[in-house]
Design a protein around this nucleic acid. Structure first.
Lengths: 242, 242
DNA sequence: TCAAAAGTGTTTGCAATACACCCATGC
DNA sequence: GCATGGGTGTATTGCAAACACTTTTGA
């Protein structure tokens, strides 16, 4: 390892000289998944200090030549092996002492992945990755617990006025899966007939010919989300509300 | 002006040596006000380069010893002369080329001020400050136009499920003022009797004995927002919705 | 034939909408 | 008196909640 010394009169010049990362700024990702009718978060076991060996949010530093959304997308792809996931910024977290030893402000994104459509990678900065129920999280370092709480609260709010829940389901799904998704995330039960009617009246689902297989009861019709219809309805002033 | 040279092997050490600011990070504030039945934004005429003399969002740099919320509150106070304004983080804006010459990521907060309860200061970084209708904004530098659009969209969303509109009205106000606030921000008209009933049924307003004075019509009763009742209702699961 | 979930029908009550209308005040 | 906004009353409509019911499938 070589140590290079720069003679610099201020940060700006040092910064523009550097071809590497923006140092006091990181990105972290809260990756949500839905498995076994439960909302889960993907955590990484840290392979570097501080908090070596502790389950934490996957993150990284922002490079000088990429915007923060791209930095987050890069981290997401490194972790899940999938490009183009649903992703949205949660905000910046900047308590002075949130990271030990030096001042690091982090910009957090939350992402949604469909079951089975990811491939957990073992990145260079972690030795292991796993899903954890949001209700049974392990101890996480720094302010990650606060960040996850905040992400969950944002997810709940967003689900109420944007049809983003489909990003947590397979492309083809029965109506009950959608209902269970909402029930799990909001922690309430819905009446099945009423839930069906409410969803169907929105005209956002395309009924498929396919049906469930291998279930010990009458097999349900599968549906897929009609994104193009949602976009055109939204333009006309349609407001999604749950 | 003195120029100091540091010998530093990397950012971290330079950073911890510095007692000043976190360089590639700024805060900007979108300050909303409501005057003449119109939603307005407070802009500053920049007194430094780049964009000298251009109307822009008030902002500043984050100090090493303050968290980002405090940095934003400081900027807000410098600009308005008022402490403890309603303030919430909008997010981080980090396009690579958003600021000319060097890479600056900014964390944006939006704030709401009550009419007459501020005192526009002329800070060291600006020669002038003024309110502008959100529908008639001047040309702003960098990505400030995009930031304001984003803040407005967040404000509209928040108004729908949090009673934050009261932060744009005087402490005592007639019901029509509240209605005009919603009408101006959402760009729609409401039926007066129905609006009254909807608001009153929430039990969030305390009717006062005071009435309007000096109006050329029957004077309206004044109300004030009952924050403690809102807090206790929220704990019981009450959901504010407009 | 039973369990379990799919899916339909129907009643009820509340709440949003759309107006019609009277009240108080300043000019 | 009249213009302006304050404030009340009421019929209508749509929708959400509640729940009873039939259908289909695998074990």
């Amino acid at each position: 390892m070589t140590i290079t010394y720069f003679l610099c009169k201020n940060f700006h010049q040092f910064a523009s000289m550097s071809n590497d990362i923006i140092d006091p700024l990181s990105v972290d990702c809260v990756i949500f998944g839905f498995e076994d009718a439960r909302l889960k978060v993907l955590l990484y076991k840290r392979s570097i200090e501080p908090a070596f060996g502790v389950w934490a949010l996957p993150g990284g530093f922002i490079r000088y030549d990429e915007n923060i959304a791209k930095a987050s997308a890069r981290v997401l792809e490194e972790v899940t092996g999938v490009k183009g996931l649903f992703m949205e910024q949660l905000g910046a977290f900047g308590e002075v002492d949130r990271f030990p030893g030096r001042r690091v402000i982090t910009v957090v994104y939350y992402a949604l992945v469909k079951p089975g459509q990811y491939n957990i990678n073992l990145g260079p900065n972690a030795s292991d990755a796993d899903w954890f129920e949001v209700k049974k999280l392990p101890d996480t370092p720094f302010d990650h617990s606060k960040i996850i709480t905040s992400a969950l609260s944002r997810l709940r709010r967003q689900l109420k006025y944007k049809p983003i829940g489909f990003n947590l389901l397979p492309d083809k799904f029965p109506l009950l899966a959608l209902q269970e998704l909402y029930e799990a995330i909001f922690g309430v039960d819905f009446d099945k007939p009423n839930f069906r009617r409410k969803i169907m009246k929105m005209n956002l689902l395309i009924p498929l010919q396919e049906k469930q297989t291998g279930v010990a009861h009458r097999s349900a019709r599968l549906y897929k989300f009609d994104k193009s219809r949602y976009d055109s309805l939204t333009e006309k002033g349609f407001i999604f509300e749950m």
